[in-house]
Design a protein around this nucleic acid. Structure first.
Length: 601
RNA sequence: UGCCCGAUGGUGUAACGGUAGCACAACAGACUCUGAAUCUGUUUGUCAUGGUUCAAAUCCAUGUCGGGCAGCCA
């Protein structure tokens, strides 16, 4: 077990029931190496729920000196696409970078399981590229579809042992014969088929002699089992379809239950960790492996409760609907719970990790409060974000006793949490912009921003007093005329005066324009998909676009950099930005106790 | 009405027969040239009923409530 370095902090998870099991196996020396896997189906983009699984599987690999294979669980040609494979790889790389990237199990492009000899028995194995192998070669994820040949061999072996048979029942009849949870099933009329006949039929299924669904290969287990998955489950079905990875090569495809356990075995997986709904499949997982007389140690399945975050949805089927029906701009819309959306919004991978690791691993199904995620984001960004001054809803301020045309360069710290971040200069002139929220004509008690006749400190600059409120014909405040205490500049004679409020500002003559996208939760209720149509709970105000005035240094804002617009929140540059057009996403607002106080009234 | 799984403050989790702890949230205060951050303090919990035991959140039994399983999806 590796010792975590101090800066990894929360990146190393506390123990949980799965880690306890792994630790015991390590203590017993049960496996030569701990090997986990993350096996998404490439039928959609990865989301925050997957992040929990990724961090669990990679976390275990990194804590116990093991490896975690990234594997496409692609046994259903009808639903899977290469676009999803690419996005999955990119998202996983992003999430584990600088944390567990050295544990990421990939294989040389095109590699398939090799026939090997295990203790005198024929065997197949495909391990991750390592060392010199990995250095030069082009790598790719593992694919269950790369094992179709071996899986077929195992199917033949099962038939030969009398453990499987070809069944000619139609889909409807198969369902009828299966019975119900509280009613036993009945044997298929084809259950007694001889091994020789089944072998012949399977071979002809593979050769394409039969149409879709004409026949299936089934395990011969127990039609009366109280566990439905043991009632002669289907192992293979006929699908004449183009597969994103294997093309036209196959017209029979193994079912999840048959492919998954064998994929785990072929890759030498030791701990196959999945979500709770597969718990009832575990006896089948074990049955298949145990009935094949496999020479190497068998993998075992462990289940945990998936992450269910509040005020969003993590069903791939529903996310795809939002994308197709244009409720969002795409899979990577910053309001989406997808990893690509979260990344685009400006959330660092380290914050995602600290969140999903923090919620823990149990078998208790729970709804996770998004405040926990928000806290993780703020905690992370507070340490790393560069402070900048930007005004979201500008109102003009003229400093009447400051010389017109004079420009002062003021020093501003880049990050009070990090002295090494240094300082920058910001220009100050006679005409400024401040945020509309920072002025009130008739403020409530305890409002300590600007008011008529009141004083406020301009961050890094002067204390000003509001002399005059200028309005347009409609009565809207369009300008504030203020007098500055010219001795009160930071470091000046009266700078130490106790002024309750400090606000941000930008010099009108130097300000640069930016589009700022303000995001709110995508749904208005904690569990949008609990009942009825989840789309009726879509938040109509989940996006608000603002034209902001920013301090000039933001002109060179970098895509990978995180910013805190002081007193407002954390922001990151959006890929929609172009030369001369800045677009920022608000990652998350700062905690705002004043706003909360106002809300209460 | 079959089988499997689960239940600890508002939320998420820890305690592995021996002081119910942590985080988030909430509340109160301190500090503050970010009403942020930071710091201090406060409130709130073992699903129920029996049993075993010197001692039970923990072990056993029964019940209650919640979830999963009847795709040729994963």
């Amino acid at each position: 077990m590796s010792t975590p370095s101090p800066e990894q902090g929360a990146a190393t998870a506390p123990s949980d029931f799965i880690r306890d099991i792994v630790a015991e196996h390590v203590a017993q020396g049960r496996y030569p190496r701990i090997h986990t896997r993350f096996p998404p189906e490439p039928n959609g983009y990865l989301h925050i729920g997957h992040a929990k699984s990724i961090c669990l599987n990679f976390g275990i690999a990194r804590e116990f000196g093991g490896v975690c294979n990234l594997r496409m669980d692609d046994t259903n040609p009808a639903k899977e696409e290469a676009e999803y494979v690419d996005s999955i790889l990119a998202d996983v790389r992003w999430l584990v970078r600088d944390w567990a990237d050295d544990r990421l199990g990939l294989k040389p492009a095109g590699a398939t399981p090799k026939a090997i000899d295990s203790q005198g028995q024929p065997d197949f194995y495909l391990g991750p590229a390592a060392g010199a192998d990995a250095a030069g070669a082009k790598l790719e994820p593992f694919y269950a579809s790369d094992y179709f040949e071996q899986i077929y061999t195992y199917a033949v072996a099962l038939i030969e042992k009398g453990k499987a048979y070809v069944c000619d029942l139609s889909p409807e009849d198969t369902e009828a014969y299966r019975g119900a949870p509280d009613r036993p099933g009945r044997d298929s009329p084809f259950r007694a088929r001889t091994a020789a006949e089944s072998l012949d039929l399977l071979q002809r299924m593979k050769a394409g002699e039969f149409p879709d669904s004409a026949r299936t290969l089934r395990a011969r287990i127990d039609m009366a089992s109280p566990n439905i998955w043991l009632r002669d489950p289907i192992l293979y079905r006929i699908r004449h379809a183009e597969h994103h990875h294997t093309g036209q090569q196959w017209c029979i495809y193994p079912m999840y239950d048959f492919a998954h356990c064998l994929s785990d075995y072929l890759e030498g997986i030791t701990h196959s960790i999945c979500t709770l709904e597969f718990e009832v499949h575990r006896p089948l997982y074990d049955w298949i492996l145990e009935n094949l007389n496999l020479p190497r140690p068998l993998p075992h399945q462990y289940e945990f409760a998936k992450l269910i975050p509040g005020y969003t949805i993590v069903s791939k089927r529903k996310l795809i609907q939002l994308v197709n029906e244009k409720a969002v701009t795409g899979w990577d819309d910053p309001r989406m719970p997808t990893l690509s959306g979260i990344r685009r919004r400006g959330v660092p991978a380290s914050a995602v990790r600290s969140f999903v690791i923090g919620v823990g691993v149990t078998k208790f199904i729970s709804l996770t409060d998004m405040a926990v995620f928000e806290h993780a984001i703020r905690e992370d960004l507070n340490k790393r974000a560069l402070r900048r001054l930007a005004v979201l809803r500008p109102i003009k301020v003229v400093i009447t006793n400051f010389p017109e045309g004079k420009v002062e360069e003021l020093d501003a710290v880049n990050n009070p949490e990090d002295p090494n971040a240094g300082t920058r200069k910001i220009p100050f002139g006679q005409t400024l912009y401040i945020d509309r929220d920072d002025f009130m004509e008739n403020p409530p008690p305890k409002y300590f921003r600007l008011r008529p006749g009141g004083e406020v400190r301009l961050k890094y600059a002067y204390i000003i007093k509001c002399d005059e409120v200028v309005k347009d014909a409609a009565g809207n405040v369009i300008e504030l005329r203020c007098i500055a205490d010219l001795e009160s500049k930071t470091g000046g004679a009266t700078a130490a005066r106790k002024i309750k409020g400090t606000i941000h500002w930008v010099s009108a003559a130097h300000a640069i324009d930016a589009e700022v996208r303000m995001y709110d939760r995508l749904f208005t209720v904690p569990e949008p998909d609990a009942a009825g149509d989840f789309k009726q709970h879509l938040n109509p105000h989940s996006l608000e676009i603002l034209s902001a005035k920013c301090e000039p240094s933001l002109q060179t804002a970098a895509p990978a950099q995180h910013y805190q617009f002081e007193r407002l929140g954390y922001f990151a540059l959006d890929p929609d930005s172009a030369a001369g057009k800045l677009v920022f996403n608000r990652t998350i607002a700062l905690r705002d106790t004043w706003a909360r106080e106002m809300q209460k009234k």
